[in-house]
Computed example of a mutant assay.
Amino acid sequence: MAAEQTPAPDYGRMVAEARRAFYVMFGVLCLVWALHLVNWLTDYQLSVDGGIRAREPGSLPDLVSAPFLHVNWAHLEGNSGPLFIFGFLAAYRGVKRFLGLTALLAVTSGAAIWLFSPERSLTIGASGLVFGYFGYVVLRGLIDRNLIDSLIGVVMGASFAYILTTAVPGTPGISWQGHLGGLLGGLAGAWIFRERRPKASTAPASAPVPAQSARPGSAPAEGSAALTERQKLLKELDDLGL
């Protein structure tokens, strides 16, 4: 069985995807900042209308809007840098996969907030997405067996491991529920959105059957080469008894 060959990396495609990921994340940040400007001008009415209220069925659609809203300018500034860095690293392997991952993180982080936050609490912010992208980037390279992504994951994990302290249940003053839900969603997303390669065939190649020389009066062996004209003539004479 021939050994499976790893395809050579397509660096041109990687550069194109990285450029596309940069534009996508730049657009996301522009959207978040524009929403906050409107939020600020309306005395943060968007936060009131679009925040997640724990265990209120009518607030379930707010799982989609809450990650893009913030409490104040300091909250927005604190999330913008990590959101862009981890979002870009999550998106540069494919924007379509990134959009699916973002939808997954909005659900997992928002559901954790909705289920486990204190009664009558209102929660907004992109921290759940940030933690989800972080978990995805750290684990993706190991699952895909990609050296570049594995190195990125090691560097990011070692550099930002301290943020995991804010995903510990019971941490006061922050929405640890959203952080933990986003982190678990990112780890799950690394498996769900993994690189799927076609399976190599495991059937052994059959060896060619050697050609056998034909004798007068004998039938050609299965898989032998075609008989020559002289061999055909000898066989016909033998059949006639000559």
Rank of each mutant, 00 (worst) to 15 (best):
P172I: 03
A8I: 09
R53H: 13
I163W: 04
G94H: 10
L104S: 09
G125Y: 01
H75W: 06
P82M: 07
G50I: 09
A8Q: 07
P57E: 03
V32Y: 10
V71S: 06
S117A: 15
H179W: 02
E229F: 13
Y162D: 03
G223Y: 05
G186E: 00
Y133I: 01
L60N: 11
S218N: 05
K96V: 14
A207I: 09
P61A: 15
N79P: 00
I152L: 13
L69R: 04
A203K: 11
G58V: 06
F84D: 09
V209P: 01
P82V: 05
Q231N: 08
A219R: 10
V209Q: 06
M156R: 01
R140K: 11
Q45Y: 03
A2G: 11
M156H: 01
L89Y: 08
E222Y: 11
A3L: 12
M25Q: 15
Y11D: 03
Q231R: 13
A74F: 10
L139F: 04
L122M: 05
D238T: 08
Y92C: 09
S109L: 00
G27K: 07
Y23T: 10
L89R: 09
G128M: 07
R194L: 05
H70I: 07
L183F: 14
A106W: 02
G157H: 06
I124S: 00
P204G: 05
D49N: 14
R93H: 15
W40F: 14
W191Q: 05
L29D: 11
V137R: 04
S206D: 07
L122D: 04
M25Y: 10
G217C: 09
L101D: 01
A103T: 08
A203Q: 14
A90R: 08
Q212V: 14
G186Q: 00
L35V: 13
R197W: 04
S218D: 05
G58A: 15
M1G: 15
V138A: 12
G81Y: 07
L37C: 12
G217V: 06
I85K: 00
V15Y: 09
E56G: 01
